[in-house]
Structure formats: structure tokens, C-alpha cells
């Protein structure tokens, strides 16, 4: 049973800013290039580094743009179309810029029976997003529902960017958001 604080895990990390613009600096240079080379050493094929390379891209840019996909395709010897086909299969790569804080609330059955829908409503209200998937007028928040986060005993788990919060209730949502301001 969880007695942990609801929003533990230290300070919340903001996603990299300025993701509306296509940067001019290539992603895979310097330390990031070295990181990719190390990853490539772990697999017998270059293609196997695709998911890790896309993670590096998203960490750097905040989202996975067409231009970014082309860069990944270039370093791994794949076509941009192939990369896009893979990107669209997975839910965690953002194909559009998202709010500075990307909020994912689990509403699958185990969390649902513990009141997860009220947690979603509270987030939509307090962030002023209004609707799922829309970014708040101040550009700070995007709230979505997500399927089982694998933490069902700590209902309701919420991911904000890469921070994983547990046992969030509708009542604690304002406190969670206050930590972000």
C-alpha cells in the first residue's frame, strides 16, 4: 500500500521551450552523437537504434517534427517515410508541439473505479484547457487521458512530462499544479 506523498519525486522538469520553431542546429552532434554511437554498439542492426534515436530527438526538441524525422532517417540510413511509419505507431512521440507541461491522466478501469475521471475534470478545469488534447490559452498545459500506466495500485497516476506522480485525487490537483508555477 502506498503511503507516499501524492506528488513526490522532486521538482518537476519543464519540457524544452521554443518548440514551435525548427532549430538550425542538428540534433546528432557532439555529446548526442556520441550517445547515439554508444547505443548503436548495442545492436546488430542500425535500425534497432530507431526508438532510442527518436527519444533523443524528442528530448532535444520537445516533439518529433517532419524535419526531425528526416534527421533521424539520415543518421540511421532509413527513409523519412519509414521513420514516420514507426513514429505514428507509438503514443509517446509527440507529432505536434504540446504545452510546456504535458499532463497524462490514466483513466483505465482500475483507476476509473477509484475516481480517475474526476481527476481529469479537475485538471481540465484548473489548467483552463477546457477540453482533452487542447493546449491551454497560456500555452502552458495540454491534458490527455492515457491508458494504464502500470501503477494501478497508486490510483490515480499522472505523468507530467517525464515526472510520474502517484495517488493524485481531484482534491490534490490544485497542489500539483501549484508546484509547476
Amino acid at each position: 500500500m502506498s503511503h507516499g506523498p501524492s506528488a513526490a519525486g522532486g521538482s518537476l522538469v519543464a519540457a524544452p521551450a521554443d518548440h514551435a520553431h525548427e532549430p538550425h542546429v542538428p540534433v546528432f552532434t557532439g555529446a548526442r552523437r556520441q550517445e547515439l554511437d554508444m547505443i548503436l554498439g548495442r545492436y546488430p542492426t542500425k535500425m534497432a537504434a530507431l526508438l532510442p534515436a527518436l527519444w533523443i530527438l524528442q528530448e532535444e526538441r520537445g516533439w518529433v517534427s517532419e524535419g526531425g524525422m528526416a534527421e533521424v532517417a539520415g543518421v540511421l540510413g532509413l527513409t523519412p517515410a519509414y521513420v514516420k511509419g514507426v513514429v505514428t505507431f507509438y503514443t509517446m512521440y509527440h507529432q505536434h508541439p504540446v504545452g510546456k507541461y504535458f499532463v497524462q491522466v490514466c483513466t483505465t478501469t482500475p483507476c476509473n473505479v477509484c475516481g480517475a475521471e474526476d481527476v481529469v475534470k479537475a485538471f481540465l478545469q484548473h489548467t483552463r484547457c477546457g477540453e482533452l488534447g487542447l493546449t491551454s490559452p497560456d500555452g502552458r498545459f495540454t491534458v490527455i487521458e492515457v491508458e494504464c500506466l502500470g501503477a494501478c495500485g497508486f490510483a490515480t497516476p499522472v505523468m507530467i512530462n517525464s515526472d510520474f506522480l502517484e495517488s493524485v485525487t481531484a482534491d490534490t490537483v490544485p497542489d500539483v499544479l501549484a508546484e509547476l508555477r
Binding site: 534497432a48 514507426v86 507509438y90 509517446m92
Partner: peptide
């Protein structure tokens, strides 16, 4: 190896495809 969001990748052959850099 870090996945990227897809329940189906828990199915063993889907997991292998995903590991190989495929859908």
C-alpha cells in the same frame, strides 16, 4: 531498451519487432 507507448509491445513477437526499430 526504452519503449515508446504501446500495450501491444508486451506481446512477445511485437516486442521483438519494436526492439528491431519497427512498428
Amino acid at each position: 531498451h526504452k519503449g515508446a507507448g504501446a500495450y501491444i509491445c508486451g506481446e512477445e513477437t511485437a516486442l521483438m519487432n519494436s526492439l528491431e526499430g519497427k512498428r
